[in-house]
Design a protein around this nucleic acid. Structure first.
Length: 598
RNA sequence: GCACCGUUGGUCCAGUGGUAGGACAUUAGCUUCCCAAGCUAAUAGCCCGGGUUCAAUUCCCGGACGGUGCACCA
């Protein structure tokens, strides 16, 4: 299938299209049309069902705009920059930090200030890799991929549109842990938009400036919590480990989740668990598993927070695209927010048995320290406390020496041991504060939608006529069913069709009604948007003895069965929930048609 | 952000220095008892700005958007 065909279908049938066309269009922004929005919502619902509800997790909805301080802590303000230098001759843009790293062996040049990188470029006589023109004197510009905005009027507070939904979960951890009653493990999910001011958006839904993420932040005790690996240990996966990617003749590793974790191919059991869950979920929503793999990130590819990371990738139009990432983020995020934020981003972990420990304490007599050391008194008291923890034996002597201040301002003070009021106390500790680790399955919803459309796209022949259809699974298809009167010149048929459509909608099914054009044309319209079942009201169904019946036609095979109107809503609901059409074929009269698909 | 190519009804295309034509789709009517049938009619378009010209959808410049390559993708 050509990618163009899918784009054309998406536009024509209302799946998705570039936004703001009346104003010239805006690169990096797409609008989901009626079918696309329904499809995307179904994907989100299926994700929620699997990753929130069935895992016993909770979903939240955080703001998309967050204040600057959040991103100072998260590292996005500094780390989410690209340092670009533009060649004055040919105009090509290059990563300034990469040029410097390559030429000087400096590591992590990204962390250096722009002026310093400019100086390094000049000092090392670096030239444009494209055309060879010297780059000395060319300005190094920071391009931050976050959208900046102002919060409030006047001396506004700087804010940013979140570059990932995850931060909205992390920053609320102190409260979220309360809802989890302070115990690990627990998981918080969020589905919503994230924003990245991409330099060059490309490839339809694949790289957007506003896109939808479905993320789970699984908070775990790294020392104790283990995933329920037995649930997915037999799930077969196709892995593409980093070692195989590096090898010239690298091959896929076909194995099971259980074995991959046992063998250490997947470093974290938690990551392994979610790879297994994801494999099953992708299969459920209709990804072609022959065009799907899990690829491990190469060392240089990992984000600033990730210890081990796997991507789910699907093949679309001949390319492998990343559709989800599974990262073991360690305690990076919570530690940073603990450091920068006001609240405690820790969990109190109770010991099995309370521990009695000896703790050295001081209770300095400030009425002595004050007069003696003046402004340094506070610092001296603090230094005494630190010393007591580190080296209690120091207090055996008559006087104790502590150092306050740093660098040139450092001063040494002697304090009488008596004044320090040193003591060793027995303290009962019932537990400790630990920083949970985070396992993060992060799904791109738009990319999943794109994958499902590409993998569902089919062309075949019905009755010698070519047709295009989307073989979407019923759970995901934008419409659950369509209802037609076979012909419109019989009021009995149109009236019953109206009634059937209304009844199905009342039963919660998304149903299209179409009485325009020939029956074949109407089938094709529904085929193109992937409607799995078409219900046709015909004269046979109302003129024969017994209850009124209608025909139900299955999209891929064009096979039909005759179903009593009273059973229809129940049967369609069952089909949507996963029952096979064959079950209906067994139970009901089939309708003989001379239609053949191939 | 750079380079090359492109942008014409809803969609896919043809074409022109004197404001455009087809196919499909859509709508209405006729017809019509199960897979894009037929007939009649209707709706609907030259990406935006500037320049050259009596006249620009067409030529020139700039922009936007799209495709491809480079770069980038925390």
């Amino acid at each position: 299938m050509a990618a163009d065909d899918l784009v054309e279908l998406a536009k024509r049938r209302g799946f998705f299209f570039g936004s703001n066309g009346a104003y010239g269009g805006t690169a990096g922004f797409y609008t989901f049309g009626p079918q696309g929005a329904a499809l995307k919502r179904n994907v989100e619902d299926a994700w929620r069902d699997r990753f929130t509800i069935r895992e016993g997790n909770r979903e939240i909805e955080a703001p998309t705009i967050m204040p600057e301080a959040v991103f100072e802590a998260s590292g996005h303000l500094d780390g989410f920059n690209d340092m670009l230098v533009e060649c004055p001759e040919c105009g090509a843009s290059h990563r300034a930090d990469h040029l410097v790293e390559d030429a000087t062996g400096i590591e992590d040049a990204e962390a250096l200030p722009g002026e310093e990188v400019e100086a390094l470029i000049a000092d090392n006589d670096l030239a444009c890799p494209s055309c060879g023109t010297p780059l000395a004197g060319a300005p190094v510009e920071n391009f931050n991929l976050m959208f900046a905005t102002d919060i409030g009027p006047g001396d506004a507070q700087p804010g940013y549109l979140r570059p990932e939904t995850a931060q909205g979960i992390f920053v609320e951890f102190p409260r979220l842990k309360e809802y989890a009653r302070g115990s690990l493990p627990f998981g918080i999910t969020q589905i919503g938009p994230a924003y990245r001011n991409e330099i060059s958006p490309r490839g339809g839904l694949l790289r957007l400036r506003e896109f939808t993420q479905a993320e789970l932040e699984q908070f775990v005790d790294p020392e104790e919590d283990e995933p329920p690996l037995d649930r997915v240990e037999d799930v077969e996966v196709r892995l593409y480990p980093a070692t195989e990617q590096a090898a010239d003749d690298g091959e896929y590793l076909h194995t099971t989740i259980g074995e991959a974790v046992d063998d250490g191919v997947i470093g974290s059991p938690w990551v392994g668990y979610y790879l297994g869950v994801a494999q099953e979920w992708y299969e459920r929503v209709g990804v072609d598993m022959d065009r799907f793999r899990f690829r491990q990130h190469l060392a240089g590819e990992r984000a600033h927070y990730a210890a081990d990371c796997w991507d789910a990738e699907s093949e679309v139009g001949g390319d492998w695209i990343e559709i989800a990432g599974f990262a073991y983020r360690g305690d990076y995020d919570l530690s940073k927010h603990d450091e920068y934020g006001d609240d405690a981003f820790t969990i109190f972990k109770r010991y099995d048995e309370p521990k009695t420990v000896e703790r050295a304490t001081v209770d300095p007599d400030m009425s002595v320290l004050g007069p003696e050391f003046g402004g340094d008194a506070g610092a001296v008291a603090e230094a005494l406390a630190t010393l007591a923890e580190r080296d209690p034996d120091a207090f055996d002597a008559e006087t104790v020496t502590v150092e306050v201040g740093e660098g040139d301002a450092a001063e040494t003070h002697e304090v009488d041991a008596d004044v320090a009021n040193f003591a060793v106390e027995e303290v009962t500790e019932t537990g400790e504060h630990i920083t949970p680790h985070v396992v993060e399955p992060s799904f791109g919803v738009g990319r999943t939608v794109q994958t499902l459309l590409a993998h569902a796209y089919r062309e075949d022949e019905v009755d010698g006529e070519e047709r295009t259809y989307l073989s979407l699974v019923p759970e995901i298809a934008p419409q659950d069913a369509a209802v037609f009167p076979l012909v419109t010149n019989d009021d009995r048929l149109t009236a019953l069709a109206d009634e059937v459509a209304a009844d199905l909608r009342a039963a919660g099914l998304a149903v299209a009604y179409d009485d325009s054009g020939s029956i074949g044309r109407r089938y094709r319209r529904q085929d193109e948007i992937g409607t799995p079942f078409c219900v046709t009201v015909d004269r046979d169904g109302i003129e024969r003895d017994g209850p009124d019946t209608v025909t139900v036609r299955e999209r891929d095979s064009a096979a039909q069965v005759r179903v009593p109107v009273d059973d229809l809503a129940g049967e369609l609901a069952a089909l949507r929930a996963g029952e096979s059409f064959d079950a209906l074929v067994d139970r009901y009269e089939t309708v003989a048609t001379d239609v053949e698909t191939n």
